[in-house]
Design a protein around this nucleic acid. Structure first.
Lengths: 116, 116
DNA sequence: GCACAACTTCGATGGGCGTCGTATTATCGG
DNA sequence: CCGATAATACGACGCCCATCGAAGTTGTGC
């Protein structure tokens, strides 16, 4: 009976009322995770896990997706062997008004000082 | 010639255009620093370094003030041996619209899930 | 000038987390 | 049933940072 593992199907998502500000900030403070969020924000649509432009290995990326999901920032579901990702923008807006949108806006414009 | 040290007087503050989103998030993600920011937000006024209610030693607190100041979140100046602190709310609002206010709002209300 | 109070600086320590490679599971197409 | 593809689970490793205590600096008041 080697534990059920991923079960391949349904994925658990937290109720946003059970998510703390600390969790969300922890999720958004990592540059790689913020890149994921930003790309999701730009696309406005679901994106498969493998379609992100980030400078880390696949296993690391999986870890980041878990953190984002557990923080309530993204929603995920399977389509075959592919896992799709989407922002939980509206729910986040209710839970922490203005927070996610502020980060998205800042990431979108000149998030970096003078270095380009 | 033991370097000038603190010089006791004027303190250097960054221009907010030279501050990155990463810096600000790094500053705000720490619970102790966020407690400082929250208490400053509530007070609406300057507070001396020693008047904060945080569960760390004095030397650690000094470190946190440095991080907050270098991230452009707070402004500091000496009054005798006392150092006063104030939020740079308006400037932050211009640089990263909605960010600081969102964090303040979230910290103020139920930032924690269900644990009280 | 001296003691005291407020804060800083320095060096050391510990824990957490981002990172990776490898092995494993799940799904689809022949 | 077999291979290929997509993603996860599992340790392990290294670094960064929050933390502290002790010593130092600056200013105040007597």
């Amino acid at each position: 009976m080697p534990r059920p593992r991923a079960a391949g199907r349904t994925i658990a998502h937290p109720n946003l009322s059970a998510v703390s500000l600390q969790q969300v900030l922890d999720a958004l403070v990592d540059p790689v995770r913020r890149a994921v969020v930003t790309q999701l924000g730009r696309a406005g649509e679901e994106i498969s896990c493998g379609s992100f432009d980030v400078p880390v290995s696949v296993s690391t990326l999986t870890h980041h997706f878990n953190v984002l999901r557990e923080a309530g920032v993204i929603r995920q579901y399977y389509v075959g062997t592919t896992k799709m990702n989407a922002l939980r923008s509206e729910e986040m807006q209710e839970r922490f008004p203005g927070l996610l949108s502020a980060v998205l806006a800042a990431s979108g414009s000149d998030a970096q000082p003078t270095e380009a």
